[in-house]
Amino acid sequence: MASLIRSFLQSLMKMFNAIIGMAGIAMVIYSFWMIRVWHKQTGHSPFEESDYPFPWFIYTFLGLGVTFCVITCSGHIAAETMNGCCLYLYMMIVFLLLVLEGVITADVFLNHNWEQDFPKDPTGNLHELKVFIRENFDFCKWIGLPILAAQGLSFLLAMVLKALGPHRDRYYDSDEEYAASRHPLLRNSADPPHVADSLYAPRK
């Protein structure tokens, strides 16, 4: 029964991690699109040195997307192995990400001049994203809430899996501790008599 519960929780954690991973892949694709637009406008890649201002928004969005993908991979490994160190590391990364998201969200909703806290975006993508969110607030809300819920539930499931511990059937004792009846192949069986020797043996 305990093994079934662990397997069910592992599957749930992998599913929620897949949601985070899909969000990360979407952010990486959007970052590549912004890099393409920046290259068309300036003739330079954002990763090259140029006289244009630093496109920090592209770097930030790309970094967040890669971070989401790394969290998904680490969460899948932690859920599959149920290793204590992997689960602790995963919980720490997700907790820091939740704190960062909470701080940014609180700053945006409570501070009316929140744009002054960020450096000027030379690409203009931050303004376009802000306008898109305002015009499609309900749509963005129903996308953001599942991602946030997936992060929180993944954190809780990692805590539960850490409390349950690993599968006991994954750890085996040495063969010497088993009874002789458990491993008959390890016995030294006597050699059967040879039929040919008995046929050609000299008769008295």
Rank of each mutant, 00 (worst) to 15 (best):
D169E: 14
F155V: 04
V108L: 01
H44N: 04
T123N: 15
A26E: 06
G152W: 09
S154L: 02
D121M: 03
H167I: 06
N125W: 14
N111Q: 00
D138R: 04
Y172H: 14
Y52E: 04
H194S: 15
M27A: 08
T67W: 14
I20Y: 07
D138W: 08
F57R: 00
Y88W: 12
A150N: 05
D121G: 11
L129M: 07
H39Y: 10
V99L: 07
N83Y: 00
V195P: 10
Q116Y: 07
W33N: 02
F47Q: 08
H183W: 09
E128Q: 15
V66M: 10
A23H: 03
L12H: 07
G144P: 04
V103D: 02
H127W: 06
S7A: 07
I58S: 09
L156D: 02
L87W: 05
A79Y: 10
F139E: 10
L161E: 03
M22T: 04
S74C: 10
M13K: 08
I5S: 07
L4P: 00
R187Q: 15
H112P: 03
F109C: 08
P53A: 03
P202D: 11
K40V: 03
L186P: 00
F47N: 12
G63Q: 06
V108M: 00
D51R: 04
W56F: 14
S198F: 13
E101H: 09
H183P: 00
I77K: 11
P55F: 00
S3K: 07
A180E: 13
V66E: 01
E135Y: 02
F57H: 12
P193Y: 07
M27T: 05
E48R: 07
L89G: 13
I19E: 02
M91D: 00
A201T: 12
M27W: 00
G75D: 02
E177G: 01
D191K: 13
K141F: 15
Q151H: 09
G152K: 05
A149G: 07
T67Y: 13
T60M: 11
R187W: 13
T42C: 01
N136S: 03
K204H: 11
K14L: 02
I29A: 07
L4I: 12
K141G: 06
A163I: 14
L186Y: 12
P46H: 00
V66A: 10
F8K: 11
I35V: 13
W142S: 10
D51F: 01
R170G: 10
Y88K: 15
S7L: 01
H167S: 15
S7K: 08
A23T: 06
G21V: 03
M13A: 11
S154P: 10
F47D: 12
D117R: 09
F47A: 13
M1W: 07
H194V: 13
V94C: 08
P122V: 04
R168Y: 13
A79Q: 02
P119R: 14
W38Q: 03
L4E: 09
I29T: 03
L161C: 01
K14A: 02
Y59A: 05
S45Q: 05
E128N: 08
K130M: 04
L186A: 13
A79S: 14
L100R: 11
W38F: 14
V195G: 12
C69Q: 12
